[in-house]
């Protein structure tokens, strides 16, 4: 597979995963902020504010988890390297 094709596939995958994350965020914030008594179609002031804050929190949490995952994977790699060096 040529590098251009691989890069394109990776970009498509990233877009797909962003869409997946957006869907999950929508579901989560709707569940947290919009009570299931749909008296009117318009969002109330409280619901709108809650949704704004929910999105901000979700994205903050997403970024934080990304850093944590990277950190843990680096630690794992070091442990694996040490184990390989010990057996070798």
């Amino acid at each position: 597979m040529d590098p251009m094709k691989a890069q394109q596939l990776a970009a498509e995958l990233e877009v797909e995963m962003m869409a997946d994350m957006y869907n999950r965020m929508t579901n989560a914030c709707h569940r947290k902020c919009v009570p299931p008594h749909y008296k009117e179609a318009e969002l109330s002031k409280g619901e709108a504010v809650c949704l704004d804050r929910c999105v901000a929190k979700y994205l903050d949490l997403h970024e934080r988890l990304g850093r944590k995952l990277t950190e843990l994977s680096v630690q794992d790699e070091e442990v694996m390297r040490k184990a390989a060096a010990g057996t070798g």
């Binding site: 990233e14 579901n27 989560a28 979700y58 949490l61 988890l65």
Partner: peptide
């Protein structure tokens, strides 16, 4: 990896 990452975000957020 990205799916696990998204799912983790969802679980921890909840």
């Amino acid at each position: 990896f990205l799916l696990v990452y998204n799912r983790m975000t969802e679980i921890c957020f909840h």
